[in-house]
């Protein structure tokens, strides 16, 4: 870890850059990671199948570009910022889960206003300057807060699952959206998500406001230590943390806010 001494008595250390004191130009932070244009476009991942599937790639870190050749994706309503080529948009009330899905969704309040985008060309999605994280599913199940789900392959099944009490403290309802199947999904986070592995030896505690998604066989329950209560503060409605046990991955955003990507 490079560590530059700044001036004579203090220095700044970060993972991404080393800062040396100097004039305005010299002293500026070196690599600016979140400039959209300057980021190399990430490779769209290896094609997994022979049939034509919408290709997800990130344009910068906050815009998702989906290349389509006649196929379709499901996306959060209103998340399209631009497209070229021929696209058609279809509103899908209830997330396309049929009657039962609609009823469940209405009961749970887990509204996921979804549209189906179909066509030839490139469609660009973004959601309030949130960071976008690509998740490739190979048969497993992704649990994600509905407000954080931006876009999925049309081939992926989306549903709703009861997740216990977590939602109650986050104002997101008691149910969580699940995405299942094989294909790509894009989830949003306030700042780039940190992916944390949970193993049997190392359970993980997460602030409910920072949780966005998880995969794998994880059991979750609330933990409300008396001491922790003093951390979160009275009145904030967050006197809990979620404890994850088992084997799996948890996606955490570097923010305690639950407003971004939340209510539309």
């Amino acid at each position: 870890m490079a560590c530059a001494r700044v001036h004579k008595r203090w220095s700044i250390v970060t993972a991404a850059r080393t800062i040396t004191a100097g004039g305005a130009t010299k002293g500026r932070s070196g690599a600016d990671r979140d400039q959209l244009g300057s980021r190399p476009v990430r490779a769209p991942g290896p094609p997994t199948t022979v049939w034509s599937v919408a290709q997800f790639r990130l344009q910068g870190s906050k815009v998702l570009a989906v290349d389509m050749t006649g196929d379709a994706v499901k996306a959060k309503n209103g998340a399209m910022v631009a497209y070229d080529g021929q696209m058609s948009f279809k509103k899908m009330t209830g997330g396309g889960e049929g009657l039962r899905g609609m009823v469940t969704r209405r009961l749970t309040g887990e509204q996921m206003a979804v549209m189906e985008v179909k066509g030839h060309g490139t469609c660009y999605f973004a959601d309030r300057a949130s960071e976008i994280n690509l998740v490739r599913l190979q048969g497993e199940k992704l649990y994600v807060e509905a407000s954080n789900l931006l876009c999925t392959d049309a081939a992926l099944r989306t549903g709703t699952t009861f997740t216990g009490m977590r939602g109650a403290s986050q104002g997101n309802g008691l149910f969580t959206t699940t995405v299942e199947g094989t294909g790509q999904a894009a989830i949003t986070s306030d700042g780039p998500a940190v992916v944390l592995r949970v193993t049997k030896q190392y359970p993980l505690q997460v602030d409910p406001g920072a949780y966005i998604a998880h995969t794998g066989g994880l059991k979750q329950h609330f933990q409300s230590g008396v001491n922790f209560r003093t951390l979160i503060g009275e009145g904030s409605g967050e006197a809990f943390q979620i404890r994850f046990e088992g084997e799996g991955l948890v996606y955490v955003q570097p923010s305690e806010r639950n407003t971004v990507g939340g209510e539309v």
Partner: peptide, 8 residues
Amino acid sequence: KGKMIAYY
């Protein structure tokens, strides 16, 4: 307060 997002 509130700046911890997760811990092991």
